[in-house]
Design a protein around this nucleic acid. Structure first.
Length: 562
RNA sequence: UGGGGGAUCGUCUAAUGGUAGGACGUCAGAUUCUGGUUCUGAUUGUGGGGGUUCAACUCCUCCUCCCCCAGCCA
């Protein structure tokens, strides 16, 4: 199987891989890796990377490793490792037995560093962090060589060994690559390879006092795992010469090709770990799985399916230019999925009581409702119809605008799966003027199967029967941010100012049909005419809690806006 | 302003010298017991100036704009 069988035209990465296969650069081998650092939860940007790495490995009959890039012990934890594995699996990817940790390579990485020293390609520097910054030069001026650059081989070896043994304070020494302090590429001005950290690593404990940097550990981890194509985001573009330098100077047998692509940006939300953390810690959202967050846990709780997210990533494509994807693309992906899979159900979010005056008091009638018009095998269910029902506040207007097809005084509307009713009056609270009930009559011939069943009216609305409706809370979400994206100026202050104050709206007094009483947590439903909703873990017997995943497309809202 | 990247419909993304195509969105129509779905149609684009060529999104040249880099983070 090749990528060309899946894509009418391959993206630039698949094109490169095809060319590498053509030239036998890695034989026919294609081996990728998904390398998150276990210092936070995965988000939809990671989903793009997973779809790329796991997707490509599948298309080219290769492999994809899950690698935890845990070279910085100060921010990493086992909890994150577990969370990452859960999320990768949930998204639908399988690393089988290829689970790796950069920390498992620490010993071999150390040996490579020693080799570099022996080859006069690395040295131990005693400059402080500030001094190193000064010596580095600027974007336009070359750097200066550290006095320690000329340190003897034996002395370097001995100092490095003592660094490892924990004989020095943090910051006292650092191992640097000996490359070129005048390089126009700042990453090549003798970058750090190892730093001293007297910190317990969540996996290796206290056996290491020095830890390799990303620039040293990453290329070698790729080499050790036999990775052929190392996909990363654009900001690593000017690290590529260093990536190649490390592999060349360490004389490894497998030299992977680093390829950079543009990270995913979604409009009206944030993707950086720092900002996500800020939202959680400052309480702007309720935890990492808040349904407003673009984290995989948040999307999952919001009701997004793994298939929809994968499909979204496919649609978005992969390229090198910076881009911001509109929310509409994500929303389309989940609607497309849920339209096929979610059972339909009646729910009233903003209830108004309707009294059907000519319907006998105490009488209850069964009506048949279709579970999913897209899937006949989902069958039908019975709904009970009675004299008093709830309809949505939006479906009644005392003074209807033009093209309003719903209920208004003297006008008819069909109750979905039920009768055509006609509004004959309105009850109002004497003091507030608020509508307390809508009075209607029904046409008894218009039920499905009735003599007038075929009679057409402009509108059909949803409803629930007062007598057996279940109370529910519904949480309606809007975007996290008001503007479509943060500018470069997006500081911590800036983020707070751009938050959408109405990103969460809690509707406490909703009514849903009784069939929902045995719904399981996480299941998605279409509330007829409204949107897709899923049952939240906060639900309990007394009160069901639903999250709105996404609304239905609403062409009436568009007409009314004009 | 040193280096590295990038610029194609509103938004993503194809087309490597040969009809600028697809998706999302938008608009219009058809169907519909969901103003949903589905179907049909329409809409709009190669950052700018020169040049090469029968032919340029594509090659050359000049310009403009955007992003990334001066962590002992990744």
């Amino acid at each position: 199987m090749t990528s060309s069988e899946h894509h009418s035209s391959a993206d630039f990465i698949r094109t490169k891989i095809l060319a590498d296969q053509e030239s036998q650069r890695f034989g026919q081998r294609v081996h990728t890796r998904f390398p998150p650092e276990p210092n936070g939860h995965l988000h939809i940007g990671h989903a793009k990377s997973m779809c790329l790495n796991f997707g490509i490995s599948q298309e080219f009959s290769g492999f994809c490793n899950l690698r935890l890039d845990d070279t910085n012990p100060t921010k990493e934890s086992m909890d994150y490792v577990q969370s990452i594995q859960d999320d990768v699996r949930w998204l639908g990817f399988d690393w089988t037995d290829r689970l790796y940790f950069a920390s498992d390579y620490f010993e071999r990485l150390y040996d490579y560093a020693v080799k570099l020293i022996q080859n006069n390609k690395a040295y131990v520097d005693s400059l402080t962090a500030e001094e190193i910054r000064d010596y580095r030069g600027t974007l336009t001026e070359p750097g200066k060589e550290s006095p320690d650059r000329q340190r003897s081989l034996d002395e370097n070896l001995e100092l490095f060994s003592k660094m490892r043994a924990g004989e020095f304070e943090e910051g006292a020494y650092i191992l640097r690559a000996k490359i070129d302090m005048a390089s126009p590429n700042i990453n090549m001005r003798d970058p750090a390879l190892y730093r001293i950290r007297h910190v317990t690593h969540y996996r290796t404990g206290d056996i290491w006092r020095i830890y390799p940097t990303y620039d040293f550990a990453h290329p070698l981890s790729d080499a050790l795992e036999g990775i052929t194509h190392s996909l990363c985001t654009l900001e690593f573009e000017d690290h590529r010469p260093l990536y190649d330098w490390v592999l060349r100077e360490c004389e490894v047998s497998c030299h992977s090709q680093q390829i950079e692509f543009a990270r995913l940006n979604l409009a009206h939300t944030v993707m950086s770990k720092r900002k996500l953390l800020q939202l959680v810690e400052e309480g702007h959202v309720n935890g990492w799985d808040d349904p407003r967050l673009p984290t995989l846990k948040g999307l999952r709780r919001r009701g997004y399916s793994p298939a929809a997210i994968r499909n979204f990533c496919d649609r978005v494509g992969v390229a090198k230019r910076d881009s911001v994807i509109e929310m509409g693309v994500l929303e389309h992906a989940i609607r497309e999925d849920l339209n096929r899979s979610a059972d339909r159900v009646m729910a009233v979010l903003h209830p108004v009581k309707v009294i059907i005056e000519n319907f006998p008091e105490g009488q209850i009638e069964e009506v048949e409702a279709v579970n999913n018009p897209e899937d006949a095998s989902r069958g039908t269910r019975q709904l009970s119809f009675s004299r008093e029902i709830y309809i949505d506040h939006d479906d009644f207007r005392e003074d209807p605008p033009k093209k309003y097809f719903r209920l208004s005084p003297g006008k008819e509307v069909r109750l979905k799966y039920g009768y055509i009713i006609c509004c004959v009056g309105v009850d109002k609270d004497e003091t507030t003027g608020e509508i307390t009930a809508i009075r209607c009559t029904y046409d008894s011939e218009t039920k499905r199967g009735g003599a007038q069943a075929g009679r057409k009216v402009k509108g059909t609305i949803h409803w629930v029967s007062v007598q057996d409706a279940l109370p529910a809370e519904v949480r309606v979400y809007e975007t996290l941010l008001l503007p479509s994206n943060l500018d470069a100026e997006g500081t911590s202050q800036g983020l707070e100012a751009k938050l959408n104050p109405d990103s969460l709206q809690v509707l406490e007094t909703c009514w849903v049909e009784p069939s929902l009483s045995d719904a399981t947590i996480g299941t998605s439903f279409q509330f007829e005419r409204q949107g897709y909703f899923c049952l939240d873990p906060d639900s309990h017997k007394q009160k069901l809690v639903f999250n709105r995943t996404v609304s239905l497309r609403d062409s009436w809202a568009k007409i009314e806006r004009k």
